[in-house]
């Protein structure tokens, strides 16, 4: 599986929510694109990841 352009070993079952937690980020501070498609936050916990998936996770920081 590819996460932010880098290979990451997938140990199934892993959801988008699991992946966000593994990267040390908070669910309410990210946006996630799976294979080019935005994943709604309500679907993080029920979206299972596959070996050929490509995931982009963007975290946001304070200030503006």
């Amino acid at each position: 599986m590819k996460v932010n352009g880098k290979h990451l070993e997938l140990i199934p079952p892993m959801t988008v929510e699991d992946l966000i937690l593994n990267t040390g980020r908070r669910q309410d501070r990210v946006a996630v694109e799976l294979n080019g498609k935005i994943i709604p936050r309500s679907e993080y916990a029920c979206t299972l990841l596959k070996e050929d998936d490509s995931v982009e996770i963007v975290g946001f920081v304070g200030g503006g």
Partner: peptide, 14 residues
């Protein structure tokens, strides 16, 4: 997106 609070930024972008 020109907010300051991270969770608000994520909410808007999503």
């Amino acid at each position: 997106e020109a907010f300051d609070v991270p969770s608000e930024k994520a909410m808007l972008i999503n």
